[in-house]
Structures are given as C-alpha cells and as structure tokens.
C-alpha cells in the first residue's frame, strides 16, 4: 500500500468504519444510561431543587476556592487544552469545510496562524498535564491504563494535524492520512472510554446538582 492508497483508505472505508462504530457506541451508551433510570428517593426533599441542576452545570467548570492554587496545572492546563481543542475543531478552516461537506452547515473560521498558535498551546498544555500526572505521586497512583491511553488518542490528532500543516517529518500525503487515521481511532475509542464525558458531562452535572438541592445543599 503506497501513501496515496493509504490516504484513500482512511478517507473512504476507514472513515466508514470509524463513524459507524462511533455512532453505534454513542447511541448505545446514551440509550443504556438513560433507560437505566434512577432509584426513587423515598425521603422527603429538604427543599425544591430549583435551578441547582443548571447552576451546577456551569459552576463545576470553575475551580472551587483554593483548588486553583493547589493544582494549578490541572486547572489552567485543562482550560487551555479544552478551549484549544474546541477552537481547532470548530474554527479551523479545513474542519469547517469538513463539517460543511458532511452537513451543509458552515461558518467563518480563524486565520491559519491563529489556529496554529492554538494548536501549539494545546499541545503544550497537554504535555504539561502529562508531566504533572507522572510527577505527582497521588495522580500517578490514581492513573490507570485508560488515562494514559485516552491522553495519547487525544494528543495524536492534534500533533499529526499540526505536522501535516507544517510539512514536518513525513510527506504531506502520509501525514494527512495519519492525521485522519488518528481521528478515526479517537472516534472509535470515544464511546467506550472516559472520553464519553463529551456527551455525559452536562447530564451528570445536572443530575448531581438537583440531587444535592433535594438533600438541602442548593447552589
């Protein structure tokens, strides 16, 4: 298989497989989670839940008092790489083109230089967080294979995409194919690992917030 055949495969059959597994896994897991239901709380609520669910969705994105000082790398790095990923995926011109190609929706993107800067910052933040995870004994102790693995599958698309654009190391054809392949691996892995938080994040925050309010701790 030469590099053009490789690229043709990842653009065609490879993408089919990855998108298929991603959609199958995502719909499956969402279905299963929501049909699971929640046990009835037989105790009388301390108070009405009010808007605690909604508030929690946002408040959990802010560091609790004192925590920013205790683990600055987790918080600052976390912000940078999450926002960076969103900027790259949703405001990078080639990605908007991809979305337009698949759905017909499109919007203006950011100049390539700004996307390049966001990419470098995202990678730097992710690397800093990896080093932090290795250096901090508690973090290292809590880390399982899944943590290292999901870090890698998130990092690789960013790295290969940047290298393809900058024409580094390998010819553009190969690098672009590797970039698409790494995204496909991410798509396949996403529904079955902790990366599924992309979908469950807000639902679970809402649930926790409103449950806490019922128990008398509104936010």
């Amino acid at each position: 298989m030469n590099e053009l055949q490789f690229l043709t495969w990842v653009r065609g059959p490879g993408l089919d497989i990855a998108v298929g597994i991603f959609l199958l896994g995502t719909v499956w897991r969402l279905f299963e989670i929501y049909t699971l239901g929640r046990g009835k709380d037989l105790a009388a609520p301390r108070r009405a839940a009010g808007a605690s669910g909604l508030h929690t969705v946002f408040r959990r994105s802010l560091p609790p008092p004192g925590m920013l000082k205790r683990s600055p790398v987790s918080y600052i790095g976390g912000y940078i790489f999450h926002i960076g990923l969103a900027v790259i995926v949703f405001l990078g011109a080639p990605h908007i083109m991809l979305i337009a190609n698949l759905t017909g929706l499109s919007w203006p993107g950011l100049p390539a230089q700004i996307i390049g800067l966001a990419t470098v910052m995202t990678m730097a933040a992710m690397l800093a967080m990896l080093v932090d995870r290795i250096n901090k004994p508690a973090k290292r102790f809590l880390s399982t294979f899944e943590d290292w693995f999901t870090w890698a599958v998130t990092f690789l698309p960013v790295l290969t995409g940047w290298m393809a654009v900058q024409h580094l190391l390998l010819p553009y054809t190969t690098m672009l194919a590797l970039h698409i392949l790494s995204v496909e691996i991410l798509l396949i892995v996403l529904p079955f690992t902790k990366l599924f938080h992309v979908f469950t994040l807000f639902g679970s925050r809402w649930y926790n917030g409103s449950a806490n309010a019922r128990k008398g701790v509104p936010v």
Partner: peptide, 19 residues
C-alpha cells in the same frame, strides 16, 4: 483531499444498530 471520499455509508445503519 482532506474531505471524505464519499459520505460515510454507516451513518444510517450504525445509530439504528446502536439504538
């Protein structure tokens, strides 16, 4: 070149199978 060669054929079948 960076676009899918054709629209992914699995978009219909996969969610049904997932559901």
């Amino acid at each position: 070149l960076s676009m899918p060669a054709h629209p992914p054929t699995s978009v219909v079948a996969a969610p049904v199978a997932g559901a």
